[in-house]
Design a protein around this nucleic acid. Structure first.
Lengths: 201, 201
DNA sequence: GTGAAGTGCAAGTAAACACTTGCATTCTTG
DNA sequence: CAAGAATGCAAGTGTTTACTTGCACTTCAC
């Protein structure tokens, strides 16, 4: 990595960690620069403003998240495997970003600069998953007596609160390996047993 | 209500709404005073400092929450009814406070003044519920192949994300009547069907 | 080896912040 | 009605914030 990008990256990394912990308004440019081991002036020369840092951060996030989406594509044979994989992906992504996306989703409701960047965000995800749930209901794989939006909300509610508890609120331990963690599977299993069509599991 | 308490109450109400939306650091004493229709100086004369307002707010919150706890006491005949009632109570309480408690639980991780006041908070709740879950597992009413902590986390994950989506992130509509809302019962039912011991429902 | 780009450092800006002081005015209460 | 408490208003404090300017230094491509 060239020295020039290294500086920018260190700034973005520092901003990512601080914003994830203290939120956008609670994070100062001075603190970002300090943690990045860089002069505060450099931050402004590279990113123009605090909002500029946020924009660059969001861009980098979107880029990485795109990588996840691709990895998600191969939807597994069974609905259960697909959803469990999605849950693990959601959790892994959110944890790898240190709760940044989660914190930003939170801040979007109150900080205009953040709201601009988040776009559809959670509502979009929710809608998309609800469509999938509806399909699987029609196929008789998920129980039909619950609205698909509710199933989607239950799913995301579990994954997002799992991450929120651990990264933002400091409750519980982070899993060593998300792709194999037993606790995640148990949590998912509560959802799954409640969502699967009777006589199907 | 006497005029003197009225002033203090208006300040606390304003602070409650603003902090719920913008967080503790994002809320200014000027904004609180303005929304309360009161001079900023009055706020300081009554509450000494911004942290003082927060303390008073927490005290009032604890007092109201105590009311809920009493109402909760009569644990219903069936586990299902008990947990559904608890879910409705949690949601009603959080909504009535306009997401304040939720936002504060969030801020506690990063704002020392908030952390001091929140005490055990979510971890305490989680532990308490996990104990109840363990009891019901031993009684054969809840499935035994899932750790009680996971069951408790699933429960609170659903109720808290339900409120979080609606109050903080602006996703979905608030229920007109929490005690009767069908959506809440559906959401709870996903949890319940996944948590109940086989052949028990 | 020269020039341009990137960075550090010192100093400074204007605005916003929590919080204070002094005084005039209103409200409450005995 | 008188006294004291509660409030409003105007003007301030010192600190922190995002952001700027000017200058010296290094690095590296050509």
């Amino acid at each position: 990595m060239s020295a020039v990008n290294d500086t920018a990256d260190r700034i973005l990394n520092a901003a990512s960690e601080l914003i994830a912990t203290y939120g956008y308004v609670g994070t100062t440019t001075r603190a970002i620069a300090e943690r990045a081991g860089v002069n505060e002036v450099t931050l402004f020369r590279r990113f123009e403003s605090k909002a500029g840092v946020l924009r660059a951060l969001a861009a980098r996030m979107a880029q990485r998240q795109a990588g996840y989406a691709v990895a998600a594509a191969p939807d597994s044979e069974s609905v259960r495997d697909t959803l469990l994989a999605l849950a693990r992906m959601e959790i892994a992504g959110a944890i790898e970003m240190g709760g940044l996306a989660m914190r930003l989703a939170f801040d979007a409701a109150s900080v205009p600069e953040v709201a601009e960047l988040m776009g559809e965000g959670p509502p979009g995800n929710l809608e998309g998953l609800a469509e999938y749930m509806a399909e699987r209901q029609e196929a008789g794989e998920l129980r039909g007596d619950i609205a698909p939006e509710v199933l989607a909300e239950a799913f995301f509610g579990l994954t997002s609160s799992y991450v929120m508890y651990r990264t933002v609120m400091g409750v519980g331990d982070l899993p060593a390996d998300v792709t194999a963690d037993r606790g995640i599977e148990q949590l998912f299993d509560v959802f799954w047993s409640g969502a699967v069509a009777e006589g199907r599991e």
